[in-house]
Design a binder for these strands. Structure first.
Lengths: 344, 344
DNA sequence: TTGAAAGCGCTAACAA
DNA sequence: TTGTTAGCGCTTTCAA
């Protein structure tokens, strides 16, 4: 175990104060003679002195550590690459500033406030924060600044900063693309388990708005809540649906649909167009390659990190809700529908 | 800011000891009456008391936090998926045990020991630790247990546990595959910047051994050190080399070679076979899909996490060097060579 | 120029 | 059954 400051002081025949001053340059009111300073440095080296960060933090109240919290984090590499880019962006903002990043284990809603208040973290990036009263209360009670990623800002102004992508705009791009190809009947599918996810809700809304806009509110598409294995796909297809295109709430879920289609011998995109949300490398690996909406996750995450750092320094963020625009990556899973109808 | 234990004690009219006992169940010698216990709990709730983890850690010497250190960590999502699987594996071992994972910023060799000794980390997973005397010394001096990932164990027994994949075996699989296809002349390429990486050195050796074994040491292949952009590829190809296959030290570097080949109008695999190391989803995205050696990164990392946890609990690891076997994923970047020679 | 003393918030002997 | 006391290792005011 490394030596303590007391041991160094003892061995060098000086006070702990002097050691602290010489080794860490703190304590402005303390002046130490060059000879003593030199002696202190030598003893510290010989005794293998390492300042204890815990003790220092306890005193100063600063830990140079920021937390990263996921609403669900099971298995990053198996999930959408979303997580990877997210992590990367946050890290890039922090590491340049000598901050550490701590990934927090399971999120027990009971205990979050305990964690936020335990003195270890100076701030937190909270991903996929749900928009319930619970969460709002928690933000209000948090003793440290919070940046929420992929979460909708609440109606009332809140202390936290909310960063998300423009789900409405993204959905509009997806619908526009399909519309231009000639599609008129659309299905939006999401996973039952993800119903309460802010992004999921926002995308459902965006989907409906995008259609309402084009049909004078006459048609808002069909929204379904399927299980994540996609077992609901087959009965839907067998019911001879009028829909000619599916928009899925994530890349990964779209991938499941493509597999279902393949299993049933359905040709994508000839017989059915499929679009996902989150355009990442994964979309290149599906067969056919997946057309998808791209959100700038890395930039969003980097911004989250920088904003949090600023808040920690006591700088008031200029704005409490940041929305990043989306774009569309057209690949091979979308095409003209077989039967082209016209609604109007 | 949350209230302190002293404030709670004061408000409840009891000692701090009693509060600690009731709220955290510590201090066996202390017995508290139900009435007082109830009162303490109420006051704590009302005052919004949160135990300060820093103070507790300072006293107990435990932080429930483990560090993750990368020799080079620039940009995870841009790099090989290696990092993702690694992170995932370590996290899966820790989170089940209520441990936190802290990603450390830049690795300044000067300061590593300071970080290891500052009391914040109970142990560390160190990736791609190089095998120089510096590192060995550092391991020896470390006040906390270390598990080194993708690093070769030093000759002399060391306190740390070393976990790596069987690079020799992996290289042998790659060479065997090409050999069986009829290839007899091979190039092994790695990035200049990665020369000192343990895995890189091990793969070079493995490559040479695999060939020596098949040619009675008459031929050990050609090893080249190219820049990471692959600009050395063109001059090599223009020199009409005898080699008919390239083995690259990573998937990503193999991807660069595929792009170079495409640029020059070379048909892979007809005119040239290419193999990478690390078979991940990335290999599905290249054109053609990349044949690659697979190392079980997730399992290795999970094992690293579990081993570290055991060491922290004072359990002596049964073994100080663990080597995981590799396998080969044959995809579309390898085929019979145009000209089939026979050496023997 | 120097160091004593107080205290960050907590736990655990030890007395009472 | 209770509370007092003595620290964990560090920084910083304040007095000498």
């Amino acid at each position: 175990m490394p030596a303590t400051i007391r041991e160094v002081a003892l061995a060098a025949g000086v006070s702990r104060t002097a050691v602290s001053k010489v080794l860490h340059g703190k304590g402005e009111s303390v002046r130490v003679s060059p000879a003593k300073a030199q002696a202190i440095r030598e003893v510290a080296e010989k005794l293998n002195y390492k300042p204890n960060a815990l003790a220092r933090s306890l005193l100063t109240g600063r830990t140079h550590t920021v937390g990263l919290l996921f609403e669900h984090l099971s298995n990053i590499s198996g999930g959408p690459l979303y997580y990877v880019h997210l992590f990367d962006g946050v890290a890039s903002a922090l590491f340049n500033n000598e901050y550490r990043l701590t990934i927090l284990p399971k999120l027990d809603h009971e205990n979050v406030l305990d964690t936020l208040g335990d003195g270890q973290l100076e701030g937190i990036v909270w991903c996929k924060l749900t928009r319930d009263d619970d969460a709002i209360q928690m933000i209000h009670d948090s003793p440290i600044p919070i940046v929420a990623m992929n979460a909708m800002a609440p109606e009332e102004p809140s202390e936290a900063v909310f960063i998300s992508c423009d789900n409405d705009g993204g959905m509009d791009l997806a619908v526009e693309h399909l519309w231009d190809l000639g599609h008129r009947k659309f299905l939006f599918a999401y996973e039952r388990e993800e119903r309460a996810t802010p992004d999921c809700m926002a995308r459902v809304e965006g989907f409906q708005k995008a259609l309402a806009k084009r049909t004078n509110s006459k048609y808002e598409g069909r929204v379904v809540e399927w299980d994540w294995l996609g077992t609901d796909f087959e009965p839907w297809w067998n019911s001879s649906p009028e829909e000619t295109a599916i928009i899925c709430w994530t890349e990964r879920f779209a991938g499941v649909m493509l597999q279902q289609a393949k299993k049933l011998g359905i040709n994508v995109p000839e017989q059915l167009s499929v679009i996902g949300f989150d355009s990442t490398q994964y979309c290149e690996t599906t067969s056919p390659r997946l057309t998808a909406v791209r959100q700038p996750i890395f930039d969003m995450a980097r911004c989250a990190g920088k904003t949090l750092l600023a808040m920690i320094q006591g700088i008031n963020p200029p704005c409490h809700s940041l929305v990043f625009p989306c774009s569309l990556d057209v690949r091979d899973s979308t095409a003209k529908p077989l039967k082209v109808e016209h609604l109007q």
